[in-house]
């Protein structure tokens, strides 16, 4: 039996949550690059609240619409594109929609990997991102303690990336025999 994440007594490691998120996002049909951006961001700076938010947007269609500095869309794609826009140096980006804990983690991670800081300012119907004027973010080492229902949702989507076993795959897919006495 695989480990049951609900049995954790000491929380979940950040690497473990990274792997679960990456798989859950892939299972939800999110493009790999966005999956990596989100999973790396949560591993770097995310909180339990992030996991709840991400679990809530797994079923949605992630997309981005860009009109000049104005960025709209769904899922966490707009905040990722907003960071791209700012880090490309084009201009401050206006990202429409709610700015969530997961959004904050994404901004922190992108800023840290770029070796800069990104300021997040309130704006009409969302936030404005611009370079500088914020502390360089640091990685969190805290363990996660997500709600069981959130974990179940993440696991359900992650499960969609697994391939059901056949006797052939069990015997041949990994190459080795089933018993090993020498």
């Amino acid at each position: 039996m695989a480990a049951d994440l609900n049995q954790a007594t000491d929380g979940y490691s950040r690497a473990e949550i990274y792997a679960l998120l990456l798989r859950a996002l892939r299972g939800a049909g999110v493009s790999l690059g966005w999956c990596q951006d989100v999973a790396q961001a949560v591993e770097f700076a995310g909180t339990d609240e992030c996991l709840s938010e991400i679990a809530g947007v797994l079923g949605s269609d992630w997309r981005v619409e860009i009109a000049g500095p104005s960025i709209r869309g769904s899922g966490l794609a707009p905040i990722i594109a907003g960071c791209d826009c700012v880090l490309a140096g084009d201009a401050p980006a206006q990202v429409h929609g709610a700015f969530s804990a997961a959004s904050a983690a994404i901004v922190a991670h992108r800023a840290a990997t770029a070796g800069t800081s990104i300021a997040v300012l309130p704006d009409t119907d969302g936030v404005r991102l611009q370079l500088g004027n914020a502390l360089l973010p640091e990685a969190s080492l805290e363990r996660f303690h997500p709600e069981p229902a959130v974990l179940e949702t993440l696991k359900r989507f992650a499960h969609l990336t697994y391939v059901p076993e056949t006797e052939e795959s069990r015997q041949a897919g990994a190459g080795a025999g089933l018993t090993d006495n020498d």
Binding site: H159, T161, V163, P164, E165, S169, R170, G173
Partner: peptide, 11 residues
């Protein structure tokens, strides 16, 4: 990755 044991495999 196999569903049964979460084991990487090649098909």
């Amino acid at each position: 990755v196999s569903e049964a044991k979460l084991e990487p495999r090649l098909g």
